Every structure is written in C-alpha cells, then in structure tokens.
Amino acid sequence: MAFYSIGEVAERCGINPVTLRAWQRRYGLLKPQRSEGGHRQFDEADIQRIEEIKRWVESGVPVGKVRALLEENKLVVNDDWSSLQEEMMAVLRHVRPARLRAAIMALGREHSADALIDHIFVPVRQRLSLDQNTARTMCSMLDGVLIDYAASCLAEARKKTGKEALLIGWDCEDRTRLWLEAWRLSQQGWHIDVLAEPLDAPRPELFPGQQLFLWTGKAPSRRQQEQLAHWREQGYTVAFHGS
C-alpha cells in the first residue's frame, strides 16, 4: 500500500497543509497513520475522503457539519458497492435503455447522489472506457440515460427552496460527468443550470451577479487557481466544484 506525506497530499489535492491539520485536529475528519518518526501518512482512502470533504466545503457546507454528512453517506459496505456495480453491468449487457432507466431510478430512491456517483456510476463508466466497440456502445447508452436522469433530478430540485447557480465545465471533456456533478450540487440545496459545452476560457463577466461553479474534472492547475483568484478580486462569485 502506498503512503503519502502531508505535503504530497496537499499538492495532489490542492489544499494547504494547515487546512488538512485543522480537518484532523479540530474537526476529526481525518485519521492518518503515523510513521515511526511520528509523521502523518495518508493512503488512497484518505485522499478519497479529502476529496469528498472538499466537495462539501466548496458547495457551501460549513466544515463543522461535514462529518455528519460523511457518516450519512456510509450506506453500504464496499463489497455491496461491488455487487451493485456488477448488477449495473448485467443490466447494461442487455442494451435496453428502458430497463437501464428503471434500474437507475430504483437506485436513486435508495442511495444519495454522492454515493451513486462515486461508488457506482463513475467506476462503471471507467470499466466501460475500454477501447472496445461493445463497451463503447454500452457506455454511450449509459451516458445518455444518466444525463436524462440528472436533468430530471435538477428539475425536481427546483421545486424546493434553493439558491440559483450555474455550473460550467472548464477545460474538461467529460460532459456526462458534468451533468452528474450538477445533480450532486442540486442535492446540496442549489438550483443548478448547466452550460452543456465545457469552455476553454470561462467568462464570468457574462453572468453578472450569479453564483458560478467551475468543474475541471481534476485538480485545478496553478494557472486556473490564479485565474479564479483574479475573478474573485474583481468581485465575481466563482468557486471550484469537486477535484
């Protein structure tokens, strides 16, 4: 098992080491192991948890309330997630959109958006990303149904009290994931609209007074972080969403 120092994790996740220490000491969100010399050691599970904490904080949840939300998302154990992934693969092999749609709706009634995205939809899409015609066909069908389902969830969320926001993909190509992240935000109290086409250079000045979330699909580059800081200095309400 690979372990990472707090400096390596900070660079990888785009988080200040001071913040990571506070998440551990003050809020009890992290429990890294210690080396013989007493230094913190983080594994991949710790990094996944850090990314989940980031998503909650960047969506506006106070860090003091994140722990309870993390505990709520522990709905099933890892072995059960693997079983649900296999069930999804079995449904996909029938190549019947109606059956797939029904399966996804059933999962949506039982699990949170965070859990489904992180533990089922993303892993299954990764498995289908193989360069094989059949896998590509199944992945394309899954993407179509996921976008349709996410859009319906966004519409349903607008019936409840919430704050307006716009989600923009920035220098990324995964449009399906963009819609899934919009769904994730909608479950956190946002009325989300989506720019369907990711942009190489977002222009916040076109959306004055609006809350903007930017999705990069990976850790923001230094250039992107500097650009975000510049926009904020200009008075725009802009935030990165996710990792």
Score class of each variant (00 low, 15 high):
160 K>W: 08
143 D>N: 11
95 V>R: 15
3 F>P: 02
56 W>Q: 12
38 G>F: 13
189 G>I: 04
78 N>P: 09
66 V>K: 02
220 P>S: 06
231 W>Q: 03
47 I>L: 11
214 L>V: 10
214 L>T: 11
166 L>I: 04
100 L>M: 12
151 A>N: 08
65 K>Q: 14
22 A>W: 06
129 S>Q: 15
117 I>K: 07
223 R>C: 02
46 D>H: 04
173 E>H: 02
98 A>Y: 00
86 E>R: 10
12 R>K: 15
168 I>Y: 09
235 G>L: 06
27 Y>T: 08
223 R>H: 13
156 E>M: 09
57 V>N: 09
191 H>F: 07
137 T>D: 09
13 C>H: 01
156 E>P: 00
211 Q>F: 00
34 R>T: 03
157 A>S: 13
40 R>F: 05
42 F>G: 10
12 R>V: 02
173 E>S: 05
241 H>C: 07
27 Y>R: 10
227 Q>N: 00
44 E>P: 01
14 G>S: 09
158 R>G: 01
186 S>F: 06
72 E>K: 15
48 Q>I: 06
35 S>A: 13
64 G>W: 13
17 P>Y: 08
37 G>R: 11
25 R>Y: 14
33 Q>T: 12
14 G>L: 08
52 E>V: 07
79 D>W: 05
36 E>I: 14
240 F>H: 11
188 Q>L: 09
87 E>Q: 15
181 E>D: 13
155 A>W: 05
237 T>R: 15
62 P>N: 10
169 G>S: 02
167 L>F: 01
195 L>F: 03
214 L>K: 13
19 T>R: 14
74 K>P: 00
225 Q>F: 02
187 Q>H: 14
193 D>C: 01
171 D>S: 13
163 K>C: 03
199 L>M: 08
182 A>I: 07
49 R>Y: 14
181 E>P: 04
25 R>C: 01
49 R>I: 02
32 P>G: 07
79 D>V: 05
132 Q>M: 12
198 P>C: 03
155 A>N: 04
